[in-house]
Design a protein around this nucleic acid. Structure first.
Lengths: 211, 211
DNA sequence: CTTGACGGTGAACGGACGATCAGCTATACA
DNA sequence: TGTATAGCTGATCGTCCGTTCACCGTCAAG
């Protein structure tokens, strides 16, 4: 296939972009004004070149009608290797440890890269679908998915805690000079809970929400 | 949402079909001849009804231009195969196109599965690091990463919009009976913006926050 | 020195195409 | 018995928009 000039690539790119943004194709005059041309014939020249080189097709005389035969970014795409975790999503973790082996409450799976998610070991990691609004003030809503790393919490961490047999999100507070406690981040229900043995399941490292 | 008559469903279906087949939208006269009408006004009536009931949007006077807000078969979404996407994360998209070719502002990469992220095509998708607090009331904070799908927005979608040369998150409002506008979800700064040509970069489909 | 590709200006033409007005029938509703 | 709403005919108007013609510049190849 014939290679495109820089200008022709720009025009083709604009066609693709416009189509994706607006759901339709641009008119000659819209292309003209976007590139600052002062004649629609400049547009005509580029479109004819694109058609001659096989990148687009047209229906003569038909307004706002193109067809892209060869996409602009079809060649490059340097695929890098990166460690992607495939972790289970649970609806609740009332039981104790969700070990993967005995994972009954799995409601889906999540793929995310370990590095940016702040997770250390795949085996000790899972995701949890949030119920309730206990952390609404820090932007974690009902239905969100949190990635949980099973590691000891530090002061200020958001943790998954087992309270009354239910797993809930709380902030772990462990200021020097006083006993550690759990705190809900919801100004309407400012709960406080003591930290009991084995109540902390893990530390939330990431939040994912599908809009 | 108001219900459609049989005839109106047929017209909406024809719009969708034509778009899928031809990559563009039909003209009034093409719709007319397809249904055997003898007046373009018959077409006009149906399109006005579809718009009034919120199923489509139009740009008055613009040829072959529609936008489908409510798909005919929006219920049976066939659950796409789980596919991990590797997409770039940008800090800002002020320039114009984030094309991959000219991707200078890439600040990282994100791996996420396309199915649950609500994204359709890898090529038309990227991630954006949020700046500012314009969407703080819906739990999207400064520093969060949003997955952006480049597709036409529907009413209520959270979109990436180009305002004053900066890419910002806003909610796209397109209620039937009034002009579309953009709205910030921050009770302290309740901004409103008009929607201008090409100002909408894409629709936010997921939010990821690393705690 | 010519030739061709590339990129562009400026003006004019003509058809494609959406918008609108007037008027028609049929059905449902109250 | 009036009155909406859906659905459609037929004609006209105005403009959006693709096309074309004439012409001009630069640059590289033969």
């Amino acid at each position: 296939m014939d290679k495109l000039t820089v200008r022709q690539q720009e025009v083709l790119g604009y066609l693709q972009l416009y189509q994706r943004r607006c759901g339709t194709w641009p008119s000659f005059r819209e292309i003209e004004s976007h590139f600052g041309f002062r004649s629609t014939n400049a547009v005509m020249g580029h479109l004819r070149a694109l058609e001659r080189k096989g990148y687009i097709s047209r229906v003569p005389g038909q307004a706002r009608t193109f067809r892209i035969n060869l996409d602009l970014g079809d060649e490059e795409r340097p695929r890098e290797a990166m460690e992607v975790m495939d972790i289970p999503i649970y609806g609740n973790i009332a039981a104790g440890y969700p070990d993967g082996v005995e994972s009954s409450g799995e409601i889906g799976r999540l793929q995310i890269d370990a590095g940016s998610a702040g997770v250390r070991r795949t085996r000790h990691c899972y995701a949890l679908k949030v119920r309730g609004e206990s952390m609404i003030d820090v932007g974690i809503f009902d239905g969100d998915i949190v990635v949980v790393d099973q590691r000891p919490p530090r002061d200020g961490d958001i943790v998954v805690a087992l309270i009354d047999g239910e797993s809930t999100l709380k902030r772990f507070m462990n200021r020097p000079g006083s006993a550690a406690y759990l705190k809900a981040e919801n100004r309407n229900y400012p709960e406080l809970h003591p930290v009991s043995e084995l109540s902390i399941q893990g530390v939330a490292t990431s939040v994912v929400r599908h809009l």
